[in-house]
Design a protein around this nucleic acid. Structure first.
Lengths: 361, 361
DNA sequence: AGACCGGCTCGAATCGATTCGACCTTTTTT
DNA sequence: AAAAAAGGTCGAATCGATTCGAGCCGGTCT
């Protein structure tokens, strides 16, 4: 058992041909062979043909990207730090759109996207720190994630965050979360609502659901969620609500059930959900409870996405998710070129729908 | 203009500290410094402390992953070839689940996932061939993609495909597509349906929608779609239908509208959609056209996913998407360890719902 | 006391390419 | 016909780490 199974496979069948081997076989120097492959220098057609022939004979698959990366100092890989594992993160259309815009822009420099779930450092998942990335984009991550990044900054790897604390000394792409929600809140106030409740996005990396308490808010690390709360408070100062675990309709439904199954006198007449997906869940909960929308309950969302299977037109605020990703991509490209991009902030757009109306009498 | 703007930035502020620099400052050799960082060899606490101190003073961020990759011959990156750009591909829950399972498994060896949209080679997107990947997984790609892979095989980079032509000489993970659809078709036949139509997945890389013609079938390169057609033909030999552009409900809706807006005499009494998302679109179309399901029209899907916003319980066949991804991940891990994994094929499970019933009289 | 051993450190080779400047032919210019 | 220019090719240095075998040193065993 020892002998045969241990031997990898004979003497050196593993040995793959290198550029040097190809060059030797073609009777030219390694430098010339390199030039022949990259087409970056003057090489006679004759020589090139010889090199290519030698490569074919040896079964050489082209220059090793690893070696190229080291030499060039670039791997052509941009790390995308996402808030949770793939199966969870990619349920969120906003994240998908953002990444799509990002991927599109960085393809301009031939770079690809490496998915880096923001897990516990000891979860076995790749650590941002020791991945061969040229730059990192934080998309929708909690501020906790930033802590892991000083190692990157020491290595002077460009970092861009999409939504995050502005004081972090990191290039930030964002929208006017606070102003957007303020628009929604004003809309509700204009309709005469006084008992309003929030359904917020996850507040921290742990993303546990539950009532929105002062302590939880104090410990929150997701800037977008906090800004949106602040926007609501601009109009309804002490407004409370429920923290959803994820931006998904099931989480919204649970939150709404918790908020709505109270004596009618104290029940909110409007729910301000921090995402359209959450709002869809709120609508589902309302229907289950026999509440009519908007007669008994007004519901507003955030994002302006098209929610699959939702016939209603949601009152919401639209944000340019894809553009945010694209802006992050362009910023990365700029930074890798040694320039300093201007910070970008996008506007949101109020989008009235049929899920909000006058407060019930 | 020449002089000042060309100078990158003074003399050498760009120069980041290297391990050698740290070692020099700590008064030890580079080898010892390396040992101190990796913890892979015997280093006295004293020395380690000196090295760490020197690193801190110099602002050294740890060993360069690029150099490590070259030395080790591993980048810790697995390429995931996805069928379309991110914004399109990730609308498909099956793909997401698959990638989730995949990511989970490869995290066991600390590897991450690099997203590689299977675009035209000259689209500017990263080419699989020159990305520093240790292995590649094709997930739901057309066979066209395989053509680009001989370069990888020459470099002896492990390749695994999830659903694809079995004769490609590539490790394949799949489910019994044909058998699964056959179950559905038999189910419909048992209900007495004779006029049946298909709504298929995209047949090729171009993924254009349109009627299912013999020519299109002949030129098809998506094995899963073909196998599912074959399964239907096992029961309904000449059955035709419509090719959807993508696995999404809007595509399913369009296909169904095309199939159903014909004189009632020729109208199908059952539609066999090749995915649940497509089936959801078919249901939407039926509702628009005032057809009752299952009284006027039976609809069956494939995948067994929970479709957001769909209240009905779809008659479908469930497939273990996440397990498929996980199996691919394990296969990769095996292959990277120099072993040869066994090919895996999963079973599917018929899942009756309330969208299928007896054929109308 | 001499042989031996274990713990720690160092030198040098290696991973696989790219790139700059030098050098040698030809060909063109004056 | 001599000088300059152009076109190709090659050597050697470099990117930044890892790793193996050798060497050194102080202590233990006999």
């Amino acid at each position: 058992m020892k002998r045969q199974s241990m031997a990898p496979a004979g003497n050196r069948p593993e040995t793959r041909p290198t550029l040097a081997a190809v060059a030797a076989r073609a009777g030219v120097s390694a430098s010339t062979a390199s030039l022949a492959f990259s087409g970056r220098g003057p090489v006679s057609d004759d020589t090139r043909a010889k090199v290519l022939a030698a490569a074919a004979e040896l079964g050489y698959g082209g220059p090793d990207p690893l070696a190229q990366s080291l030499r060039r100092g670039r791997s052509g890989i941009i790390g995308a730090l996402i808030p949770a594992r793939i199966g969870v993160s990619f349920r969120d259309p906003v994240l998908i759109q953002t990444l799509d815009g990002l991927a599109e822009e960085i393809s301009a420099i031939g770079a690809g996207l490496l998915l880096l779930p923001d897990q516990d450092p000891d979860s076995g998942y790749v650590n941002v720190t020791d991945a061969p990335v040229d730059a990192v984009v934080l998309v929708g991550c909690s501020a906790d994630a930033l802590s892991a990044l000083d190692a990157l900054q020491r290595r002077s790897i460009p970092i861009v965050q999409i939504e995050g604390p502005v004081d972090a000394g990191v290039h930030t792409i964002s929208v006017d979360n606070r102003g957007g929600v303020r628009l929604l809140a004003e809309h509700l106030r204009a309709f005469g609502h006084t008992r309003v409740a929030l359904v917020t996005l996850a507040l921290d990396r742990a993303r546990t659901a539950g009532p929105l308490t002062a302590e939880r808010e104090a410990g929150a690390t997701v800037t977008a969620a906090l800004d949106r709360i602040a926007g609501a408070r601009d109009v309804y100062p002490g407004v409370g609500g429920w923290v959803a675990g994820a931006s998904r309709s099931d989480a919204g439904r649970e939150a709404a059930l918790a908020l709505l199954t109270v004596p009618p006198a104290g029940r909110p007449t409007a729910i301000l959900a921090q995402s359209d997906l959450l709002a869809a869940g709120v609508l589902a909960a309302a229907e289950e409870l026999g509440l009519r929308v908007p007669e008994d309950l007004s519901v507003v969302g955030f994002d302006g996405i098209r929610v699959d299977g939702l016939e209603r037109s949601l009152t919401t605020v639209w944000q340019p998710s894809q553009d945010k990703g694209a802006a992050a991509g362009r910023a990365i490209v700029e930074m890798l070129a040694g320039r300093s991009p201007e910070p970008v902030s996008f506007d949101v757009r109020f989008q009235p729908g049929d899920t909000s109306g006058p407060a019930p009498a």
